[in-house]
Structure formats: structure tokens, C-alpha cells
Design a protein around this nucleic acid. Structure first.
Lengths: 155, 155
DNA sequence: TATTGTTATACTCTATAACTATA
DNA sequence: TATAGTTATAGAGTATAACAATA
């Protein structure tokens, strides 16, 4: 029962535009530049996942959270390791696995990056009421969850 | 004056997740499959832009709306033309330009595709009140506009 | 035999540079 | 000389396949 088809007609282009701004609008590239980081997009995403987790994660777990496959993470982690931003440590529970851990430099890098992006978001929302901000956060969270759930049933 | 830093801390991962679901979560690929279309992602995006415009567009205008460069559109249009989904017609106002026009098959294809995606969105929002749907649409529109405006000032 | 990760390779998406045709 | 589009090439991001090591 699509109670408001016109809303859906509107929502789709908006999401496309938002996604476009976030992905190809060079938000990530600009933020990396502003943070003084010479990293590629997947690399900073890995740092973000590790920072959000607050603990070392396996390669497979990082891949799962990024919705990508293992080999992609492996390659990016090598680059991050050579730059001294992450360390690979043995998983005491399983000798096959490797735990990826942020170094002090890695933690500083991702916090600098997040600070830049959050500054821009704060600017963008500067004209918003506290209530509207809260509402956006809540609705977006719920929408993401419901959409993700619906898509997962397609498998 | 970031009135609610924790909201921003929350918003960012949500947007990343949403973007991930839309872009790499294979939503487009699945919808193409469900619509019986053997097209690539940029190709269906071009059909969507043309459908939304409701009139033939120049290559450069399509590129502008997709936020990509011209050569990318040229190549995709060739594929669409060979599949009979668009036509290239001369622009009567300028002999250098080409107008890209949806064929009947192309119109049918993009409408089938949108129908599938909208069905999924409708499912995802089935538990939502009309008020919440309206609020999401309005807030998302405003957010996209404000964020796009903020990012454009970085140039 | 199943799982974790790595190496090697290939495909998709998009950009830059050089060029053609028309304005 | 500037603009619309095309052709050719290159690079970033991600996937699949084959393999190694451990469980």
C-alpha cells in the first residue's frame, strides 16, 4: 500500500544526489587533503571502521563492515601498514587470523579527518533547529535500518 | 557552535552505511536484474536522468546532471544506442551538439526499473506513518541542499 | 574438510589529454 | 578562438579465482 507514491518519486532523486555529493563530489578527497593525509578512500574508510570499533579487528571483519571482499582489505591494509598507521598483530585465539590495530599515528589521522568532516557538517546544519537535527538523525537511522533489512531479504 | 557533536558522530556512520547500501550494496545491480535489464550502472543512471528531465538532453547536460565528465557519457550513450534504448538526434539549434532521446524501449526499461526500486522502498517504509515519511523527505531534501551548498564553497 | 588470509588477475567507473567539427 | 562532442588512454576501486596456512 504505497500511501504516497509521489514521495518515493521525490526521495529517489534526493538519495541519488546525496550519494553523489558524498561519493563523487570529492567530499572524502577534500577532507583528506584538508587533513594533510595522502591516503586513498578505502584506506581512510578502514581507519574509520577501526576507530568506530574501538578495538583491533580481523581482516574479514573489516571487509564485512565495509561490505567489500577480503582481498581488497588485505591490499589496503598493506598500504596503511607501510605508512605506519596500522599494525598487524597475531590473534591469540586463532593463528590463521590477523588483528589489525590502529597505531598512535593512525588514531591521530582518523581523528583529524573526522574533525574536518564534522566541521563541514556542523556548518551545513548551522541554520537548523536542534529539533530538526535530532529528527534527521533519528529518521535517517531508521530509514537505513529498514532499507538494509528489506534488501537483505532479496538474498 | 556544534550544538550536538554526538549527533554528528552518529550521522556520519549512518550516511556511510546508507551510501554503502545504495552504491555497493548492489541495490542497482539487483534492481537491474529484477527488471530484466542487462545494463551497467552508469547506463541506467543516464536513462533515469533523461526520464526525469522529460525531454531530450545534450551529452554535456547529462554529464553535468550526473556530476561526471563528457567522455564518460559519450561512451555509455553508445552502448545504450546500440541496444536501442536511446537515439541521437541533431540539435536544430547547434550542429555541433547531439540531443539524446529515450526510445519507447528505453522509456519502458527505466519505468520498469523505477517500479522495482520504488516497490522496495515502499516495503521498507511500510511501517512508517505518513507524517514520518513526509518528514524524512523534507529533511533529506534540506540536508542535501545545505550540504551541497557548503561543499561548493570549498572550491 | 572448512576457514582465514594472501596473491594474481580482471572488470567497472571515471578522469585527463588530444583531437574533430562547428560556432 | 571557443565550444560540443569523440577517441584513446590511464587510474582508482572492487571482484573472482587460485593458493597457503591453520583449524
Amino acid at each position: 500500500m504505497p500511501s504516497d507514491p509521489s514521495l518515493l518519486r521525490e526521495l529517489l532523486p534526493r538519495l541519488t544526489e546525496l550519494s553523489s555529493s558524498l561519493n563523487r563530489g570529492r567530499l572524502v578527497e577534500r577532507a583528506l587533503e584538508a587533513s594533510g593525509l595522502a591516503l586513498e578512500r578505502p584506506a581512510i574508510t578502514i581507519l574509520g571502521v577501526l576507530h568506530l570499533a574501538g578495538e583491533p579487528l580481523r581482516v574479514g571483519e573489516i571487509a564485512h563492515r565495509m561490505k567489500v571482499v577480503g582481498p581488497h582489505v588485505t591490499r589496503q591494509v598493506h598500504g596503511l601498514e607501510s605508512r605506519g598507521l596500522v599494525q598487524r598483530i597475531a590473534d591469540p585465539a586463532d593463528q590463521r587470523a590477523r588483528l589489525i590495530q590502529l597505531t598512535a599515528d593512525g588514531t591521530a589521522a582518523i581523528e583529524r579527518y573526522f574533525g574536518v568532516v564534522e566541521g563541514w557538517f556542523t556548518d551545513a546544519l548551522s541554520g537548523w533547529s536542534a529539533e530538526d537535527r535530532r529528527a534527521l538523525g533519528a529518521l535517517l537511522t531508521r530509514f537505513t535500518e529498514d532499507l538494509t533489512a528489506r534488501l537483505s531479504t532479496l538474498d
